[in-house]
Write a protein that binds this DNA or RNA. Sequence first.
RNA 1: GCCUGGGUGGCGGAACUGGUAGACGCAAGGGACUUAAAAUCCCUCGGUCCUCGCGGCUGUGAGGGUUCGAUCCCCUCCCCAGGCACCA
Length: 754
Amino acid sequence: MKKQLKRMGFSYDWDREVSTCEPEYYRWEQLFFLWMYEKGLAYKKGSVVNWCPQCKTVLANEQVEGGACWRCGTEVDQEHLEQWFFRITAYVEELLEYCDRLPGWPERVLTMQRNWIGKSYGCEVDFPMADDTGKTIRVFTTRQDTIFGATFMLVAAEHPLVLELSKGKPFEKEVREFVEKVGRQDRLLRTSDAYEKEGAFLGAYCLNPVTGWKMPVYAANFVLAEYGTGCVMAVPTHDQRDFEFAKKYDLPLIVVIDNPKAPLDAATMTEAYVDEGILVNSGPFDGLENLKALDTIADHLESLGRGRRTIQYRLRDWGISRQRYWGAPIPVVYCGKCGTVTVPESDLPVLLPMDVELTGEGGSPLAKNGAFMDTECPCCGGPARRETDTMDTFVESSWYFDRFCCAGFDRKPGLDKEKVNYWMPVDQYIGGIEHAILHLLYSRFYTKMLRDFGVLSFDEPFRNLLTQGMVCKETMKCRKHGFLYPDQVREGKCTQCDTPVLIGKTEKMSKSLKNVVDPDHLIREYGADTARLFCLFASPPEKDLEWSDQGVEGAFRFIGRVWRMVMDYADPTREVPAGGDLAGLPEEWKALKRKIHQTIRKVTEDIDQRFHFNTAISAVMELVNAVYQAPRPSGEDLTALGILREAIETTVILLNPFVPHVTEELWQILGRTVPLSDTAWPSFDPEAARDEEITIVIQVNGKLRSRIQAAADESEESIRERALRDESARRFTEGKTVRKVITVPGKLVNIVVS
RNA sequence: GCCUGGGUGGCGGAACUGGUAGACGCAAGGGACUUAAAAUCCCUCGGUCCUCGCGGCUGUGAGGGUUCGAUCCCCUCCCCAGGCACCA
């Protein structure tokens, strides 16, 4: 890996290399854990967690993609386990707020983070039970404007209230069966479109706090126990889920928001009305617009003492326990006497044992390692057991960038504040879009936390973010032999059985699809420079890159073209100083001089401001084409040779960041002794780059009709006059009245006629 | 369903702030060089019509709108990619 990176010519500073799996790194992570534990930012709790049966480990919510494990794709189960969590929710407000203060981040990443955090404003409302026990059911709602239409109550099947309320009632058995059934249903089924809303009546009633009506209480399969309070007031007229539920169990519907365009009738509604409207059947609030009623009704509930405004977030705490080997051991021991005890700072690091058996079967290898597990309690000295869970490896990647600033720093807290605060935040961070929420959210959290511990003095880790695309290639498949590597195909046929190969979809390069390119082979065949040039030229970095063998060939040809150009002129221009004065140059050489400086400007801007290497490279290609187009001067024409020398040297310098190896060699061939990598980037001469003559477009009624040449300093008035006299344009203005003439300096004249 | 990006020649992609659409490359076609091939160098290359011009019309997913002028701004719709999805 390292060798390959070096062969490609990437200029990494290997002195800053960091290995997150070494104790020199993860010991600090364990220290941070102790600090977090002390502050309540790390805690253990029993909860329903995502469990990957393949990896035999727990996964954070963010690490479940469409119900499957982000690593192996296996469907994730729900298990009840004791797990360690990081209290990322302590920073939820700041994480959300700073989404508006990261102008250098792509909007879609920020949107994804905002959605993931999922802030919503609403009310908690207490619904008293209809029996006289004085108990209440508390719900969270964002739609308190519909409270007059709440006709029944829904409770998550897993909620303890379900069994409590139904206990001893004639419905108890049915409720129990229902709860068990929901518990058995897996995640995939629950989220599928066909999943039907179901419930069971608990034999209990509560009262609507504003209308006083009796509302039957149901357990429902579609109510989430973990969100809000796990209980929902159901308003079937204005919520589609509640509507479906009401229809199924024949529950009453009351319209409380009327559609101003077409009045609603509860008896004939076929779906819930979820748009804006005017309140009806809502007592004192009738006639209000529902959006305005949100506030008014919230006030009303608060004055009644039945509810209060609250904010809910979708974001949950970050479950970091993993039953894997890799990852820092959690520095905690369990003592029969003292309970959960943290490992004292002086005993850190808790080392990952080297003598574990990695069976590949999943499950924690540490839990099978007695020497690791059995220890002494740091408090009482008695026998104790170590925590065998390790931390999610995303913890490691949440601060490695800080460590880069002071790699090897071996004093507490593992970060040299001065250096870190000098280098950080990262000016330009580059990563795949797949980390939009995982790594990028965790790193933001960790940064804020370390800031509050006094280690860092900045709020956000990455000032600018570029999400680069992935390298894709078409897949090839043989009917008999499945997916094929590129070298298993010759002339469209499988090399094993000679049957024609099926060309499949273009997909992200992966070993499983065999649509990969071997970098060693590529470097052997074409060299690292060709590989680099192709990748940079094919598309801008934020887009996916479609691999094309012909494109690689094209990149190789261009390098050859540059090489021949240099070889051609290296000798004749060897003794000629590059450049030369602009004044007095014949027009054709002036044009090349201009092209040189325009190219420097364009390439500098494209690299600097936009990371658009593809257009930077095409600009250099244009310069090379211009040199090929130039007439070959005689050996005495020192002016011309000087300009050519300048063009050639400029080409070599400008290409250096893209193709460093070949340009360094060409630089030497040109007789330069100072290495190109130590040579300053050229600056352009604005005077030379300026166009002396510009093409002015003449439009009639917005249609392109003619072009004229104008001197750069020609007055707007004069250009306008010439445009009006222009022969080609007059063919279209002849016999018509000129209504208006619009001139855009340096660009065009538009003559409006009727 | 909701949110975010996108949709430009045969293909990858340009067009910076509303001002010449298609830069540059690939593919294709033609020519030069060569005994020949490869390599190289040069030319043509969105569609269409004709009187083949330094021409006309048309053209950036579709349809409207704003504007002197729209790939760019606004509205409606279609399609593709990604994200979220019973979040009350």
